[in-house]
Amino acid sequence: MKAIVQMASEQVLNRKEYIATQITSEQNKNYPTELKDKTDELFPLRVELVTIYAKSLALREEEAEKSIEAWGVETGRMCARLETTLDSMLGEVPHYRKYIGEVLKEVAIEQQIGIEELYELISKLDHAMNLVVYYFSVPFVEYQTNLLEQSRNEILELSAPVVPIMEGVAVLPLIGTIDTYRAKLIMEESLNQSVRLRLNYFVLDLSGVPIVDTFVIQQLFQIIEALRLVGVEARISGIKPEIALSVVKLDISFKMVNTYSTLKQALADLVIQC
Rank of each mutant, 00 (worst) to 15 (best):
A20P: 05
Y135A: 01
C79S: 07
K105T: 10
C274V: 12
S253W: 10
F202N: 05
D269M: 03
G76I: 04
E189P: 00
V163G: 02
R152N: 11
D37M: 10
L172T: 09
P32N: 11
V47L: 04
Q6P: 00
L86S: 00
F43A: 01
V93S: 02
L49G: 00
I19K: 11
M166V: 05
A20W: 08
L250P: 06
G208H: 06
G238Q: 10
E242H: 14
F43E: 07
A58F: 13
S56K: 11
L199Y: 05
K38F: 04
D251F: 01
Y135D: 01
L104I: 13
K16I: 01
V169K: 10
E120W: 11
D87P: 00
M187R: 07
L199A: 01
I178H: 02
H95W: 07
I122S: 09
I113W: 07
Q219R: 14
M256Q: 13
Y143A: 02
K105M: 07
Y143L: 11
Q219V: 01
V138F: 00
L13S: 07
A80E: 03
K124H: 11
L49I: 05
A128N: 11
M7F: 13
L45N: 08
L57K: 12
N28S: 12
V171Q: 08
A8L: 10
M256P: 00
E65P: 02
D37Y: 11
D213V: 08
L13Y: 07
Q218E: 15
S123C: 01
T21K: 15
L197A: 04
N258A: 13
L227T: 10
T39H: 10
W71H: 09
P164D: 08
E63F: 06
P44Q: 10
T24D: 04
G208I: 02
V162A: 12
M78H: 13
